[in-house]
Every structure is written in C-alpha cells, then in structure tokens.
Amino acid sequence: MGEHAESAKGEDTEVRAKRAPVNWRRTREQGFSFVASVVRWVGLVFAAILVLHVIFVIGSANPGNGIVSFVRSWADGLSLGFRDLFTPSDEKLRVLVNYGIAAIFWLVVSAILAKILRRIGGLGS
C-alpha cells in the first residue's frame, strides 16, 4: 500500500509540473472586463425601467396594474434628483423630461464607469 501511495504522489507532482502557469495579467483584465460589463448592463436595465415608466405615463397605463406600479416604484428610486428637476404644468411632459434625463444619466454614468474599469484592468499593458 505504501508503494501505491508513493506512485500516486509522484504522478500528482508530475501533473502539477505540466500545468501551464497562470497568466495573472490576463485574469485581471478578464475580471475587470466582466465587472465593466455588469456595470453597463445594470445601467441599461435602470434606463429601461425609467423609459418604461415614461411610456406608461404617456400612454395613460392603468396605475393599479401590478407591472405599472412595480415599474413606477423602481423608477421613482432610480430618478434620483431628476424627478422634480423641471416642473412644467403638463404631467406627461414633466415625466418625459425628468425621467428621460435620468435614463440618459444612467446610460452615461454606466458607460464612463465601465470605461474606467476596463482601463484599470488593462494597466501595465
């Protein structure tokens, strides 16, 4: 039994020696690229929720509908300080402008953050 253990241990050492070395630079780049992609997708989803809210308001969707109220609750949180930036008398115009600006904000900010993350991940290249 001792001979078998010695043989297995020797094979394990040989397998470890044959493995390719880890390319940490590439791994870092892939990690930052993945995080940057997640940031872009989150920004896109946030913008989509805001645009859906605009569509529901302009289209006079039923505010009692579950989907409409769910989107409205998320859009209110995602609009940040833009919700009452402009105050035209027409509610539909107010929602279009303010929530539209908030959607553009999320797209721009997520694009900038993703670009920064990709640059950080590629440092030393």
Results as ranks from 00 to 15, higher is better:
V71Y: 02
K115F: 13
R119I: 05
F82H: 04
V45I: 15
T87W: 07
W24G: 03
H4R: 13
G31R: 04
F32N: 04
F46H: 06
G2H: 15
L113I: 11
I55K: 09
R72D: 14
A36L: 03
A61E: 06
A102W: 07
W106Q: 14
K115G: 13
G100K: 07
K9A: 09
N98Y: 09
V54M: 02
V68L: 07
G66S: 09
V15Q: 03
R26E: 15
F82S: 03
G122K: 14
L117C: 11
S69F: 04
A8Q: 08
A111G: 15
R72G: 09
R72E: 14
L78H: 00
P63I: 14
P63F: 01
Q30S: 13
V35I: 15
I112D: 03
V39D: 00
V15F: 09
A17T: 03
F46N: 09
R16G: 06
A8L: 15
W24C: 02
G77T: 11
A36P: 05
G122W: 05
R26V: 03
A20M: 09
L78E: 01
L78R: 06
I58Y: 00
G77S: 08
L85K: 15
G81R: 13
G77I: 02
V97M: 11
R16P: 01
F82A: 05
V22P: 02
T27W: 05
L93K: 00
L93P: 00
D90G: 02
